[in-house]
């Protein structure tokens, strides 16, 4: 464990608390893509089905990510259902899941169910944010709290990049699947980060140019 990874994980943790805070305080899941949240459940379940013990930290985090992502789906689907507008959450997830299944079958470290699911989850995580970003693009604006959620989530994978560089030099290990997918995942946030830093951090509302 190094500081980059620790702060990456903490940022991931923070993003979930920010999202929950947003839903609770506004009593609404407006502006949040149900599809993206559902994809995260698929990501965590397919990745953490590998019960190999690593550490207490690792186990607790895994349980938290599975539990919280399912809880968020419950909030969106049941508790605050009327506040979710499916007509703007229109990204076709089959275009993400299909290719990720294929990529998982082709690129994996061992052709076993657990390993293919692990690869699939890595690929799917890298694109799971797309329905959310697509929704943002469609509406052209976002509540500030929602942009903080996205920034924390983007920072999580961005921090994993220096973590991999650090691990390469200290342990001599590289995980090509995780690194490739991680770079793609971080890349998808670049546009968002640009607007976040130039507008939201300056106290302005998140609005995309028309």
């Amino acid at each position: 464990m190094n500081l980059f990874r620790l702060f990456g994980d903490l940022s991931h943790l923070a993003s979930i608390f920010i999202l929950l805070h947003k839903i609770y305080t506004t009593r609404s899941c407006r502006g949040i893509s149900f599809k993206t949240q559902a994809l995260y459940v698929a990501v965590f379940v397919s990745r953490y089905i590998d019960f190999t013990y690593i550490s207490v930290y690792n186990t607790l985090m895994k349980l938290f990510f599975i539990g919280s992502s399912c809880y968020i789906l419950y909030l969106m689907r049941i508790k605050y259902r009327p506040t979710h507008d499916p007509s703007i959450d229109t990204f076709r997830v089959e275009y993400l899941v299909g290719p990720c299944v294929l990529l998982g079958l082709i690129f994996n470290y061992q052709f076993t169910v657990i390993e293919v699911l692990w690869s699939f989850s890595i690929f799917l995580e890298s694109v799971a944010i797309l329905p959310q970003l697509f929704m943002l693009q469609r509406t052209g604006e976002a509540e500030t709290i929602t942009t903080h959620y996205l920034a924390a989530l983007g920072a999580y994978r961005a921090l994993y990049i220096p973590n991999w560089i650090y691990r390469y030099f200290t342990e001599g290990t590289v995980d090509p699947i995780a690194v490739t997918a991680g770079l793609v995942q971080t890349g998808l946030y670049l546009d968002f980060f640009y607007v976040y830093f130039t507008k939201v951090m300056q106290g302005q509302k998140f609005e995309l140019p028309a």
Binding site: R5, D9, H12, D50, T52, I54, S55, N58, M61, K62, F65, Y109, Q110, E115, W118, Y160, N163, T173, V174, D175, I177, A178
Partner: peptide, 10 residues
């Protein structure tokens, strides 16, 4: 053991 790579990450 290549299969173990990255598996300690979340």
């Amino acid at each position: 053991d290549t299969a173990a790579k990255g598996k300690d990450e979340l």
